[in-house]
């Protein structure tokens, strides 16, 4: 063994075995465990049918967008509900972002090549998972939100049992 080998081995052996996270990660871990328990309480399906589940999740997501649309942009025939302006603005923002998401997905199918399409689907699932997480965060006791999150997370892990993340 040369001096350089010995020096390298010594430097590797001195490497610290602990590192301090930049923030306290326990609240995230605790929330993930709580969500895991909520998801475990859901009835499990017997066979994997990912495309149908993704479609169902997308439909639910799009449904949420439509609800947001109704809240955010009342028709001329309707009287706007006497709600404060801030919630309407929030719903309208969600609706705008959701519409842009759906539009981008439909363009993906029309114009992208196979690689771009795959990257787009990857990004779409990632975004959908982020949206599902936010739903769970907003409504931690809602079993539908937990089910959407589980389905999308499973799709992202190629059918493996997903892990809850915050």
């Amino acid at each position: 063994m040369s001096d350089r080998d010995r020096d390298l081995e010594a430097r590797l052996a001195r490497a610290p075995s602990e590192a301090e996270p930049a923030r306290d990660l326990w609240p995230d871990v605790a929330r993930a465990i709580a969500a895991e328990r909520a998801i475990e309480a859901q009835p499990r399906r017997l066979a994997p049918r990912l495309p149908l589940q993704i479609a169902a999740a997308l439909a639910l997501f799009a449904g949420g967008i439509l609800v947001g649309q109704r809240w955010g942009e009342p028709t001329h025939a309707e009287t706007p509900p006497p709600a404060p302006a801030a919630p309407l603005a929030a719903a309208a923002e969600v609706q705008r972002a959701g519409s842009a998401y759906v539009s981008a997905l439909s363009r993906l199918d029309e114009s992208a090549g196979p690689l771009e399409r795959e990257q787009g689907v990857d990004a779409a699932l990632s975004t959908l998972q982020g949206a599902a997480w936010e739903l769970v965060r907003l409504r931690p006791d809602d079993p539908q939100a937990g089910r959407i999150l589980y389905t999308v997370s499973e799709a992202r892990t190629d059918g493996e049992a997903p892990t809850v993340r915050f």
């Binding site: 995230d28 993930a32 892990t163």
Partner: peptide, 15 residues
């Protein structure tokens, strides 16, 4: 990424 792994690991450990 490290924070994700930490969370994943502790959720697995809890499970």
């Amino acid at each position: 990424g490290a924070e994700e792994i930490v969370q994943d690991a502790f959720v697995r450990a809890w499970r």
